[in-house]
Computed example of a mutant assay.
Amino acid sequence: MKIKNLSYKHRQDFSLKNISFQVKRGEILGILGSNGSGKTTLIKNILGVLRGEGDITLNGSNIQSIPLNKRKNILSYVPQESQVNNLTVFDTIMLGRIPYMRYKQNEKNIKIVDELLVRFNLNHFKNRKINFLSGGEKQRCYIARAIAQNSEVLILDEPTSSLDIANAINILSIIKEIVKEKNIRCIIIIHDLNLAYNFCNTFLFLKNGEQIYFGSKDNCFKKEIIDNLYNIDMNIYKIKDTFLVGPKIET
């Protein structure tokens, strides 16, 4: 998947300016930046909700030329806040199989949903209405629904925002496993630098609608880049094979 020279102008101001990056199969791209940096606007352009200038291609084909109702086979999306429904957990995840159903559920679709229920530790909530779940449980359900869609690109807007650290690690671990197993592409908007370092393969840093870095984590987790990204003096420590990032606080 390639995005080349993507720009989006909101009224008189540019929300995005000349964004270029790519996402390879089996990889997770982490998009980071302060609030208002253009992260969600970028995602909406990829999804086709907004239409800017530039090229967005998948396997050489222009995604923007594909009708919205047919993009479900290539793009699946979990927004930061998903709309709550009155369906059961099972039926909510089954919604992800709609692009592959003609008239009713079949054994293949039921098996796929049952496997995701187990994998996301939702099996004991299978018949519970989703509006009776906690925020973290709902998020697991919505991510499972997106994966059930079996698309080529999985897009997640702050998937760990409502999760405690244990559940965040668990969910990101499952996502990483599935991305490798299915050899798909994944784009994640994420704020936690430490989680991002451990679970993403490549990074796109946005600031005021402009791209200040795209590439591997080996090059981007440097003090001068992180300080510039967030306009704050940060400490970065390397501990064995990982980094620990935090604010520099005077004592």
Rank of each mutant, 00 (worst) to 15 (best):
residue 142 Y to K: 13
residue 130 I to Q: 02
residue 129 K to E: 00
residue 126 K to M: 05
residue 132 F to C: 03
residue 127 N to A: 07
residue 130 I to A: 01
residue 138 K to P: 06
residue 119 R to D: 10
residue 138 K to W: 06
residue 137 E to D: 09
residue 121 N to T: 12
residue 139 Q to K: 15
residue 116 L to G: 03
residue 140 R to E: 06
residue 121 N to L: 14
residue 118 V to N: 13
residue 118 V to A: 13
residue 125 F to A: 04
residue 127 N to Y: 06
residue 124 H to E: 10
residue 122 L to A: 02
residue 122 L to Q: 04
residue 117 L to Y: 01
residue 133 L to V: 04
residue 119 R to V: 08
residue 130 I to F: 01
residue 136 G to C: 10
residue 137 E to H: 11
residue 143 I to Y: 07
residue 122 L to V: 01
residue 123 N to I: 08
residue 135 G to Y: 15
residue 122 L to P: 00
residue 116 L to S: 09
residue 117 L to W: 00
residue 142 Y to Q: 06
residue 114 D to Q: 15
residue 119 R to W: 08
residue 126 K to L: 05
residue 120 F to T: 02
residue 121 N to S: 14
residue 127 N to V: 00
residue 120 F to K: 05
residue 143 I to S: 08
residue 130 I to R: 01
residue 142 Y to H: 13
residue 126 K to R: 14
residue 142 Y to R: 12
residue 129 K to Q: 10
residue 135 G to Q: 15
residue 124 H to F: 13
residue 131 N to V: 03
residue 132 F to L: 08
residue 123 N to T: 05
residue 128 R to L: 08
residue 134 S to L: 10
residue 141 C to T: 15
residue 121 N to G: 09
residue 144 A to K: 13
residue 115 E to H: 05
residue 123 N to E: 11
residue 125 F to G: 00
residue 141 C to M: 13
residue 133 L to Y: 00
residue 125 F to Q: 05
residue 127 N to D: 15
residue 120 F to S: 04
residue 123 N to G: 03
residue 116 L to K: 04
residue 124 H to M: 10
residue 128 R to N: 10
residue 128 R to M: 07
residue 132 F to D: 02
residue 144 A to R: 14
residue 133 L to A: 05
residue 117 L to R: 01
residue 129 K to Y: 03
residue 127 N to P: 03
residue 121 N to C: 13
residue 132 F to M: 06
residue 140 R to W: 08
residue 133 L to G: 02
residue 139 Q to V: 13
residue 138 K to E: 13
residue 124 H to K: 12
residue 122 L to N: 00
residue 122 L to Y: 00
residue 135 G to I: 15
residue 114 D to Y: 08
residue 127 N to M: 09
residue 126 K to F: 03
residue 118 V to P: 03
residue 131 N to S: 09
residue 129 K to T: 07
residue 138 K to H: 12
residue 135 G to C: 15
residue 116 L to Q: 06
residue 140 R to G: 02
residue 118 V to E: 15
residue 114 D to E: 15
residue 117 L to K: 04
residue 122 L to T: 02
residue 117 L to F: 01
residue 136 G to R: 12
residue 122 L to M: 13
residue 136 G to K: 11
residue 137 E to M: 10
residue 128 R to A: 07
residue 137 E to I: 12
residue 127 N to G: 07
residue 116 L to F: 05
residue 128 R to P: 05
residue 136 G to A: 09
residue 120 F to R: 05
residue 117 L to T: 01
residue 115 E to Y: 03
residue 132 F to Y: 14
residue 131 N to E: 13
residue 115 E to I: 02
residue 124 H to A: 09
residue 134 S to E: 08
residue 127 N to I: 00
residue 123 N to H: 11
residue 124 H to Y: 11
residue 120 F to G: 07
residue 144 A to L: 11
residue 115 E to P: 05
residue 144 A to T: 11
residue 124 H to T: 12
residue 130 I to V: 13
residue 118 V to Y: 11
residue 123 N to L: 08
residue 128 R to I: 06
residue 117 L to S: 03
residue 125 F to M: 14
